[in-house]
Design a protein around this nucleic acid. Structure first.
Lengths: 339, 339
DNA sequence: TTGAAAGCGCTAACAC
DNA sequence: GTGTTAGCGCTTTCAA
């Protein structure tokens, strides 16, 4: 059906090698260059990446496995990654595993069959067993957002400094005199959950505050989770005077819960949220927030992957840690005595 | 590096054809079946889709070209599509063209080089020239959300009944006595914009209302666009008493603008919004809305594409039109005289 | 049921 | 600078 290089060869009277070399940036006599170009146009020749992949043993495809596509934090990372990779002629196959470990493993296998050159994964299965075959196959694996302990040294990663981010937020609150500080985390055992909890506990300790079990809540990184967690916190006899919510969706849920309970921010409760996405600016313009640099995460991940692919024989794995930023708003205030 | 069927052949002493047939569901002597399975395990054999693609002339890859990945309406469609396609062993390569016609054309070429078996496109370039090479290549092209006039009969499509959706919304408002009804549309010349405008005009005509240029606004389908459009409408001497906003982001922007102007819904203004996504339910729980069935759009698109791929020689193109739903809330009320 | 062999479209020696 | 040729790993006749 479609024209092949052989057709070009016949049309131009040139050899296959000459044509192939020309397409791959080799030098060809001016006369032949024109000849080839004319034939390409005439026959509507389109190079066949599949054949090339088979020959070169490089598919120029990167597999991306994520827990959820309907999540603005994730899509903005993917957008910026895909942009860079496609410019370098790499295609991206995205597999949404719906935060399901079984599906995640299936996705990895699926991608390996397709001979992806590299794998980028925001992991659901924190044991990392789903990546074993990829590692055995010898392709570069790059984790984003979440580190997996058992894979240290065998994979690269791009993450943010979660401990510092949480520490900074909570320290801000303790500096204002708050001592009863609630935190709403993602699912237990997730890397980011653990790290942000560590930062929270650190900050309390620095301020000489004993942490209280009942102020630590898990909201599953969903809006509903954040909503419910706030309602639970408000039921406590010793209600927190400040709140740190550790992702975008939960922050939204938390703010709505406060609104529904007719509590004002910061008059009744100080709040620090997470992840300034476009939406946020308009809805709660004055929120104090920890911002993750999602575009940079995507960019770093793409570039790191390109390094790993283009690199020398021995792939040197690297962990890139990006820092977050605390954006000052008006959702926190000093604790007044007696509140 | 990786084991091939040739290795399996050597290991088992069987011919290549036998092994290939086994993998493709052929019948093999029990004894040989076990032999092959053992060899697969021992050598960590993984089938090479690339080689298979070259041989069969089917890549089992579907290319998806969209205007923007950071858009909840689009990602939910993609999620449901990808889910179905992957189950059938099709990979999906998503290209985000940032609503840029040049990038869109590049994406199509990029995908054709990779020999995608089919193309799904939410089009930016409404002339459809970017799809010409895909059509020439003879692969099935499926439009979603937006039809392209010039391609009628040559492509399939999954869309919603935009005219009816808008008509239904506006008729609801006229039935309540409203005669000054503003509409906020997407960019001019977009398929959905045009269709929804037609539905709006129809409904006015049915009610014997003359349409007014100044009530028709274009908000670019962005939150800011919706926000600004409302501010503009509020500046009019003859302010509309009701509003129909035609996508999610603009509805959000519109509601915020009203909030900032201290206008109450529906006391001061009746509002019908668009696209009930999860977020919406909590933020503005009482909004009357037109809902698009994004999951069904994705499902229909995936299944239609599978039909086109598996179909007989002659591909029969089909336009699937899904209907929307009007969800009753409390954001509209009868027009009171003198308001 | 099984195997030998040809070939999908390309690249990369190697010889000219 | 150009052409010949041998595969990359698979599927698929065709004959046994």
């Amino acid at each position: 059906m479609a024209a092949t290089m052989k057709d070009l060869s016949r049309e131009t009277g040139l050899g296959l090698a000459t044509i192939s070399k020309y397409f791959n940036g080799g030098t060809v006599r001016e006369k032949n260059r024109l000849l080839i170009d004319a034939a390409v146009k005439k026959l509507h020749y389109v190079p066949n990446e599949v054949a090339r992949s088979l020959k070169t043993q490089h598919s120029r495809v990167i597999g991306v496995v994520i827990p959820e596509l309907s999540n603005a934090f994730i899509t903005s990372i993917i957008s910026s990654m895909e942009d860079i990779l496609r410019k370098k002629d790499y295609a991206v196959i995205v597999c949404d595993c719906r935060s399901d470990a079984k599906r995640e493993k299936d996705a990895v296998e699926f991608l390996l069959h397709r001979r992806v050159d590299g794998l980028i994964n925001m992991a659901t299965d924190m044991t990392g067993t789903h990546l074993r075959s990829a590692l055995n196959a010898g392709i570069p694996v790059l984790l984003i957002d979440r580190l997996i302990d058992g894979l240290r040294g065998r994979v690269s990663a791009v993450v943010i400094d979660n401990v510092h981010a949480a520490n900074q937020a909570v320290r801000k609150l303790t500096a204002l005199g708050h001592r009863q500080i609630g935190i709403i985390l993602g699912s237990p055992n997730l890397y980011t959950t653990n790290q942000r909890l560590v930062g929270y506990l650190n900050a309390l300790e620095e301020a000489g505050i004993r942490s209280e079990e009942e102020y630590i809540r898990y909201g599953d990184y969903t809006m509903d989770g954040g909503y419910q967690a706030v309602l639970d916190l408000l039921k406590l006899k010793r209600r927190p005077s400040a709140l740190f919510v550790t992702n975008f969706e939960m922050t939204l849920g938390a703010m709505l819960a406060l609104q529904h309970r007719k509590l004002r921010v910061p008059e009744d409760l100080s709040v620090i949220g997470f992840d300034k996405l476009e939406l946020f600016g308009e809805i709660f313009p004055d929120l104090t927030l920890i911002r993750q640099p999602q575009l940079s995460i995507g960019r770093e991940a793409a570039n790191l992957m390109l390094d790993l692919l283009g690199g020398s024989e021995k792939v040197i794995h690297r962990i890139v840690t990006l820092s977050t930023e605390l954006t000052e708003g008006h959702s926190i205030r000093p604790l007044r005595e007696g509140v």
